[in-house]
Write a protein that binds this DNA or RNA. Structure first.
Lengths: 135, 135
DNA sequence: CCTTGAAGCTCTAGTGGCTAGAGATTGTAG
DNA sequence: CTACAATCTCTAGCCACTAGAGCTTCAAGG
């Protein structure tokens, strides 16, 4: 079984230019080519690309995915390192959530305190100007 | 009062190249220059740059900040549009939080179910390969 | 076998919000 | 007047793609 880049795209939901990009950054191996230099892929690449897509959907960056792929090929190895990467990523997400929740609270607070009057007396603008609520 | 770009940077906490960048994208007006073509800023720019910095810290993108700056200059105007921009931004943040919370849950779930054995039987790797938990 | 048109190819440039560096010039304190 | 920090412009790099130009190849129908 040997499929074109378009067919690979259809089967994985990854766009054609993105597949070529992944090849360029080394997430996908250099594929076989036809005589006319068109790429031809096999089942392994479908699985690998699906793996990449799911990892991207879960927010992993390319460097992490490269490592996860390498690890996933060493079937006998302990999965401690995999867990460590994922754990690090979860902590990363936690920090981002915290930050966003704090931002949201500050924005909502300035909205709540807005008297719906003119710009001159607008709480929101004031907060932006001073960086905090002056009471 | 007329200060250099370095002094402006010190007073606002915005780095020198970033100030030049903001000028380039039209967040800061073209400043006065010395005979030797070095930039000189006044109090207005300090205030404006502080405004920009706070807005960036609150996660607004440059396009939004441009609009907020324009609005903030029209002191008589109703602040409805300002509120609308901020409200949109809050909703944006809400969506990002939701997504991150969902991601976090999925990652944590796969970690919890990991038997700490080999890669071969690793839950985390399986989830990435299939895109969901096969029971 | 030949034509046609979709799909493929490579290469470059753009996105956002900066950051880093090269290499030249200017400001200012001693 | 000298020394040197600061500033100048310009280009390129970051991440993970995306878009487009201009060309070639593949596959199906006649």
């Amino acid at each position: 079984m040997s499929i074109s880049i378009g067919e690979l795209a259809r089967r994985t939901g990854v766009k054609v230019p993105t597949i070529r990009y992944y090849e360029g950054v080394g997430l996908l191996p250099t594929p076989a080519r036809t005589e006319g230099r068109q790429r031809r892929f096999g089942v392994d690449e479908v699985a690998r690309l699906n793996f990449i897509r799911h990892a991207r959907e879960l927010g992993f960056e390319v460097a992490d995915i490269r490592e996860l792929l390498t690890l996933s090929e060493q079937r006998e190895r302990s999965c401690a390192e995999v867990d460590a990467i994922v754990h690090r990523h979860v902590e990363n997400i936690d920090r981002r959530i915290e930050k966003l929740v704090a931002l949201r609270a500050e924005l909502q607070r300035s909205l709540d305190r807005c008297a719906r009057g003119t710009i001159e007396e607008c709480r929101v603008i004031k907060v932006l100007g001073y960086g905090y609520d002056r009471v």
